[in-house]
Computed example of a mutant assay.
Amino acid sequence: MTTLLEVENLTKHYPVKKGVVLARQVGTVRAVDGVSFRIERGETLAIVGESGCGKSTTARLVLRLIEPTGGTVRFDGQEISGAALRTLRRRVQVVFQDPYASLNPRLRVGDTIAEPMEVHGIGTRESRAARVKELLGLVGLAPFHAQRYPHEFSGGQRQRIGIARALAVQPELIICDEPVSALDVSIQAQVVNLLKDLQRRFGLSYLFIAHDLAVVHHMADRVAVMYLGQIVETAPKRAIFDRPMHPYTRALLSAIPHPDPRRRGMVKPLGGDVPSPMNPPSGCRFHTRCPFVQDRCKAEMPMLRELAPGQQVACHFAEVLPPHEAVAENGMSPVAAQRLALYAAAKARKAAKAA
């Protein structure tokens, strides 16, 4: 595979100012602090972590919806600059988290899907109308839906419209910013399976932002774990679920809910509060909550280093930590396993209906 997107040392710092007339800077919020990753063609990279860790900010930096403080973003080998932004807009699209806020309530669905094609000068009015009908069919909606307004659709249908809009200009990379977190579980299964089907059909690459590890297990090829603006572990999906090496990754896996009341309390929850990105801890940023903390962790920031093929970990003592106890067979809790079974069932029903 060839690299489609390469991000190096991406940084976004927000100045904190005090005063109205003579405002002075009194601090800095380190929202994203030196993030690096790559996405190959046809691959899905999932970025996971707690709320506020910098996942969505990273996605917006890649899209250049906000300007980075530092670092570089290269798409297909070309560094993204002002002159290349228009080309980037066509080759990289986004599916937003909130299907209710991401669509213009004053535009009909057909106009919403056709708008990116108009902006980029693609086709004629007639060919765009035909393309809108084709896209609606691809995402499981009917051609007559083009004449309706967003308020006439459910949340799952609105997210399908958002996906159709993203596909309109035939992008190579789609950034999915928690695209199913606002949907019911059964609808999540349909949307996730739709994204997987579209990836196989068109060879799409995904940057998938999520906090639900069951969804990540179904969608991702590789996983990057973020904590307080930094990536602390990156590895193939199977390695993350089978042999997580960073204490924070282990905590995320252990936090998957378990339906068996006999197991309640067996897994100790992650303690402490997330530190402020305005004043992050010295050394390892996770040391204030880590059950394996040592003096070195408080003084020296660990760097990402490869400890297994394709698995990089930012932890001084990852090699000597006690083995991680899997939460269930195949590294998943029963809740996650049931969620995956639900996805498979939804896909099977769709295939049977098509047949």
Rank of each mutant, 00 (worst) to 15 (best):
P68H: 01
V293R: 11
G162F: 12
D98A: 03
Q338I: 01
S333C: 11
A337C: 06
L167S: 06
L304Y: 10
A182M: 14
E325M: 09
E50C: 01
L167H: 08
P236I: 03
I122Q: 01
I175S: 05
R158P: 13
S181K: 06
D197Q: 15
E325R: 14
L307V: 15
L228T: 04
L270T: 06
H316R: 05
T57Y: 04
V185P: 09
K12D: 13
K12V: 14
L198N: 11
G49E: 07
G229S: 05
H211F: 08
H13I: 10
G42V: 04
H218K: 13
E79C: 03
H13W: 15
G156M: 12
H145C: 11
S282K: 13
D177P: 02
V95I: 13
C53W: 02
C176F: 00
T44R: 02
S36K: 05
E126L: 08
T124H: 09
Y149P: 09
M1H: 08
V29F: 01
E118P: 02
L141R: 08
R24G: 00
K133T: 15
V191A: 03
T234R: 07
R86T: 07
H145M: 12
H246P: 13
H120R: 04
S51G: 07
R131L: 06
V20E: 12
T11E: 14
P105D: 03
R86N: 10
V35I: 07
Y248M: 12
S36V: 06
T69F: 07
V192P: 08
D221N: 14
G140C: 13
A146N: 10
A83S: 14
I122P: 06
M301Q: 15
D273Q: 15
A23T: 14
E300G: 00
P257L: 02
A239Q: 14
H316V: 01
T44D: 01
A224V: 05
Q78M: 11
T11M: 13
P143T: 12
P116G: 01
I175N: 05
R128K: 08
R86K: 13
G271R: 14
L213F: 12
M219F: 06
H120C: 04
A224Y: 05
L45F: 00
C284Y: 03
V215W: 09
R148G: 07
P291C: 04
P259H: 09
V225W: 05
E79K: 07
R91H: 08
G34K: 02
G34P: 01
A210V: 08
S205K: 09
G272P: 12
V26M: 03
A83K: 15
V16L: 15
T72V: 14
V119C: 06
A336Q: 12
V20N: 07
G121I: 01
K350G: 13
K237T: 15
R250F: 06
F37P: 03
T249N: 09
G203F: 14
E40L: 10
